[in-house]
Amino acid sequence: MTPSRVRWHLGRVLSRQFETEAAIRLELDVPTWPGNVAGAHLDIRLTAPDGYQASRSYSLASSGESTRVVLVIQELPGGEVSPFLVRQLAEGEEVEVQGPLGRFFVWIPAEPEQSPVQLIAGGSGVVPLFSMASAREREPKGADFRLLYSVRSPRDEFFADELAELSRTIVEIVHTRESAPGAGRPPRRLTREALAASTFPASLSPRIFVCGPTPFVEAVAGWLVELGHDPAQIRTERFGGSP
């Protein structure tokens, strides 16, 4: 897929389904959407009746040629746009979207690839990485994939069913606050040692994609460098701030 010029599109909500208590899965029909690579994102622009507008960026959970795009949006308490998208935006309603955006934090199956691909997600940062694992799933041949997904509790997991069904990506989920009943191990925060044990070693020179809240990505990317990974092989996408 060659990069297409970014433009505004009109999307209509085909379905909305709670992914967790505080996150919505939105499927949009965007007739003019040119398709997107895995890992890409888009901007949503909302317009209030008085003309006031607000825009935000969201990662796409879907990829490929389809004009149906899937987003999973986490509600940010006190946020301006996400509470409307999660709680109010109705099936059949239209929104303006701009995209597809992003050509760096992406995985393109056609690229010849010798080294394995390691995905590392913190919380809702799993969305673009799920998109990459799904794209890999559609290819009969390709690089080895692993996903390490750090999330507060089983109730907070995105794509729980889909992740369990992936056959071409090894998935490991770390619960940081609350374990699954009968899991046999307590919740734990990710450490450098746990990271090393659950990811491809530096000796395999994996390409690495890390996405999550800023402190998570800072910690993980720093550990990866300490573990001997080449910084040039590590691509990051962060959200949220530092004080």
């Binding site: 910084p231 590590i234 990051t236 530092s242």
Partner: peptide, 14 residues
């Protein structure tokens, strides 16, 4: 949109 914290965006490790 006006923010009060300071988001961090970087393409790789710091």
């Amino acid at each position: 949109t006006h923010v009060y914290d300071w988001p961090v965006l970087s393409t790789g490790p710091t």
